[in-house]
Write a protein that binds this DNA or RNA. Structure first.
Length: 459
RNA sequence: GGUCCGGUGGCGGAGUGGUGACGCAGCGGACUGCAAAUCCGCGUACGCCGGUUCAAUUCCGGCCCGGACCUCCA
């Protein structure tokens, strides 16, 4: 089945075909590890995780690189404030990032390159840019000279004059052209830095991705480059300029993908509004799988409004899906085929809302099915389609009984259920209902099915 | 000013030139001691105004409204 992706470069959906049909190469801008990840940081991780899963199913090899920015001015500032090496900060928050993404069901990427391990590659690339006449040094700063790259602005579709006219910052005096951007900057003694031909310093932001891509994928074009919508300009525009010029005009990347932003209650997430919502904190309130489902509930290019109700809705949806799965306990999944309608949705530029609708259709069919073979087939479809979305891989009983919830005492619940069963046997409905109400008061819901009583945690 | 997205039923959110996806919530029914779960059924939804068309929420034009980006924010 063809996979279609919306390429920011051409502003249209295109059939995706890797340059090497045996091996897909994909790079996504990952986190800057100076704090916990917020839900907006999680969106690209989850979106490109789904693309990674889909590609893995469609091509023999997928090399997915998601970088870690482990040196930058915010990290430096934080390290200086706390009087610790930057690695203390970056180790802590990289571990937190991994934990958070794991909770969201994000698979580890194939490789996770770190900036501090690519300083030599960065320096080598900057030297080449200087040699090619695309960059210059001034007072320990090295800058990329934007007018040296005629195609500059092609990704963001801006022309230089507009960029200058719209610029909201003063032009630094060391720039030859207002659009020039930093490749290398000097570090003072109390800051982290590396020796370079231009003195002790540290890399600018944009160059790291170009250098890490070159080191890990070579100089040929990569198939896919992803990131948040805001990175189109200037970050990705600059990457194109750097890599194309460093590779003597060779194409840098074939398909550019960008995810939309997450808003919080219809407002932009920002420190000044005080509404920065951390994954770490959300995980205290809801299972990671529910948070993931919220992120999948809108198409990845659309803005997503994060609300309490959206989380509640996601939990209710998962309850329904897991209930369907739970009712299939007695049959073994007979296959791992994904229905064509589901694949079509996902392959259509990752239409996760449509795919989710198809997933519900499978669950609906499963709820109705009575034939054992059909139920076994539907169970396989539910699990396989769920896997592509990174959902439904938990034990359904565990999900419904809310494992890990501190206040759930299974033995006590079972004891009350036994008491209620006795009351029901003697048709003492008042007592039976009293016990049910008592449990409901503790967030435990009972279901009498086929002469047996099961319980689950209210979500 | 420039670039680019949106405006769909109570809510979220796909999609389509002509039978109102899917989920949540709600209502009615079946089932149940009663519930819950499940199943069946129920909603005159497509910002406004024109145009094209046998037919437009869907295509075209204009307008109104909202949002993003425009030098280091996913």
């Amino acid at each position: 089945m063809d996979i279609q992706l919306y390429n920011t470069l051409t502003r249209q959906k295109e059939v995706f075909l890797p340059l090497d049909p045996q091996r897909v190469t994909m790079y996504v801008c990952g986190p800057t590890v100076y704090n916990y990840a917020h839900i907006g940081n999680a969106r690209p991780a989850v979106v490109f995780d789904i693309l990674y899963r889909l590609l893995q199913r469609s091509f023999p090899t997928v090399v997915y690189a998601r970088n870690v920015t482990d040196v930058d001015d915010k990290i430096n500032q934080s390290a200086r404030d706390q009087g610790v090496p930057i690695s203390t900060i970056t180790d802590r928050y990289l571990a937190a990032y991994h934990a958070d993404m794991g909770a969201l069901g994000v698979l580890p990427p194939t490789i996770e390159p770190k900036v501090t391990q690519h300083i030599d590659a960065i320096i080598a690339m900057i030297e080449r840019l200087i040699a090619n006449g695309n960059a210059y040094e001034k007072d320990g700063q090295v800058l990329f000279h934007v007018p040296s790259f005629a195609q500059y602005g092609q990704l963001s579709r801006r022309d230089r004059d507009e960029m200058i006219a719209g610029a909201r910052v003063d032009v630094a005096p060391y720039k030859r052209d207002p659009a020039d951007f930093t490749l290398w900057k000097p570090s003072t003694e109390d800051m982290v830095g590396w020796d370079s031909p231009w003195g002790r310093g540290r890399p600018g932001w944009h160059i790291e991705c170009s250098a890490m891509i070159e080191r890990n994928f070579g100089t040929g074009p990569i198939d896919i480059h992803g990131g948040g919508h805001d990175l189109i300009f200037p970050h990705h525009e600059n990457e194109i300029a750097q890599s194309t010029c460093a590779h003597n005009g060779a194409l840098f990347c074939r398909t550019w993908l960008h995810n939309g932003f997450v808003n919080i209650n219809a407002e932009k997430m920002s420190k000044s509004l005080g509404n920065v919502t951390l994954v770490h904190d959300l995980l205290e309130l809801a299972p990671g799988e529910a948070l993931r489902l919220v992120l999948l509930s809108a198409h990845y290019r659309q803005p997503l409004d994060w609300t309490e109700n959206a989380v509640k809705d996601a939990r209710a949806q998962l309850d329904r899906l897991y209930r369907a799965l739970d009712s299939l306990k007695d049959v073994e999944a007979s296959n791992n085929a994904v229905p064509a309608s589901f694949m079509t949705a996902l392959a259509d530029d990752l239409n996760t809302p449509k795919a989710l609708a198809e997933l519900h259709q499978i669950a609906n069919a499963a709820n109705k099915a009575t034939d054992a073979a059909e139920r076994a087939r539907l169970k396989g479809e539910l699990l396989a389609a769920g896997w592509l979305l990174g959902l439904l891989q938990q034990d359904p009983t565990a999900w419904l009984k809310g494992t890990g919830a501190a206040d759930v005492d299974a033995a006590a619940i079972e004891a009350l259920i036994a008491e209620r069963k006795a009351a029901r046997a003697r048709k003492d409905w008042a007592e039976s209902d009293r016990i049910r109400d008592e449990l409901a008061g503790r967030g435990i819901l009972l279901e009498d099915k086929a002469g047996e009583t099961t319980w689950r945690v209210a979500s």
